[in-house]
């Protein structure tokens, strides 16, 4: 039984001291009468790992959707590297923010490599004429894309799955493939929605390791997770969202010991996820 341990930073990115990459201010998202996200503020710095926790239905995924342009927030603004993000998913990706999905959304009938290659779409430029005439640029770009995709597969530990169909991969590998696909877009900020859901302890350990390695490449990572041990070992800062609002924000230690957080979880009957014993000793 391995327990993930906080890994020391081996890069120049000191905790939270990098430049501000992502800044969400007063993001409000309403669906009719329902307020799913209420005045949420979040700042993410270069090389930082931020955790987002909260009981089911707290609005975590909805908040991600607001950040990535899938939803247009009712009010508030999101800035990525100082620029206000355009409310179009495609343009958000281009601006440097990519995500994975809570319920895996791979292109099942494409191979692992092709899935990652799709991720490079917004960073490549071969147009119709180049493609049809097959000039030198086409071949160069195609070769580069392929090499980059393979490199990313190796990076997430899926180097052996290159030619396998995404749908045939085991669950844990599919989650990692989604990460590789997101990384292929060259993001400054990576948003991971429950990256270890359905994983066994060993895979979870590998996932922490992977996220640290992504951080070490200078990217910022925002992670939604219900697995508290995972989150508290991984993150530099944690936000706890309850009913659309930020209840507590602080270091893992602060959030972990905040009675309001514990209450929020127990109050919704979601006590499986948050259990003090669990946090300290690992799964029963």
């Amino acid at each position: 039984m391995s327990t993930a341990t906080r890994r020391p930073r081996d890069t120049e990115f000191a905790s939270g001291k990098g430049e501000v990459l992502l800044q969400a201010s007063d993001v409000l998202m309403q669906f009719g009468g329902l307020t799913a996200v209420k005045d949420v503020n979040m700042t993410v710095h270069e090389g930082e790992i931020v955790g987002l926790i909260g009981p089911n239905g707290a609005g975590k995924t909805t908040f991600f959707n607001c950040l990535t342009g899938l939803y247009k927030p009712t009010s508030g603004e999101v800035r990525l590297a100082g620029e206000q993000i355009p409310p179009k998913p495609r343009k958000v990706v281009k601006a440097g923010m990519a995500r994975t999905f809570q319920n895996i959304r791979l292109f099942g009938n494409m191979t692992a490599l092709e899935n990652v290659m799709v991720g490079t779409y917004c960073r490549t430029t071969s147009g119709v004429l180049t493609t049809v005439l097959r000039g030198p640029k086409f071949h160069r770009e195609e070769k580069e894309t392929r090499a980059k995709a393979q490199e990313l597969l190796d990076f997430v530990g899926l180097g052996h799955t290159t030619e396998l169909l995404a749908r045939n991969l085991p669950y844990g590998d599919q989650r990692r493939l989604e990460v590789a696909r997101a990384l292929a877009t060259d993001p400054k900020v990576v948003l991971l929605d429950e990256p270890t859901a359905g994983m066994n302890p060993q895979e979870t350990q590998q996932a922490s390791d992977l996220i640290f390695r992504i951080r070490d490449t200078g990217r910022a990572v925002v992670v939604i997770e219900h697995d508290m041990r995972f989150i508290f070992n991984l993150c530099d800062r944690v936000l706890c969202l309850v009913r659309g609002e930020v209840l507590v924000e602080g270091s893992p230690e602060q959030v972990q010991s905040d009675p309001r957080v514990i209450e929020a979880y127990i109050g919704t009957g979601d006590d499986d996820d948050f259990d003090d014993d669990d946090v300290q000793e690992g799964p029963a």
């Binding site: 990535t68 899938l70 998913p89 495609r90 990706v93 281009k94 990519a98 995500r99 999905f101 959304r105 791979l106 292109f107 099942g108 009938n109 494409m110 799709v118 991720g119 779409y121 917004c122 960073r123 696909r181 997101a182 877009t185």
Partner: peptide, 12 residues
């Protein structure tokens, strides 16, 4: 395969 996912991955 998945229009929304494609869009979220930067495909035009």
């Amino acid at each position: 395969e998945d229009e929304r996912a494609a869009e979220a991955m930067g495909v035009n």
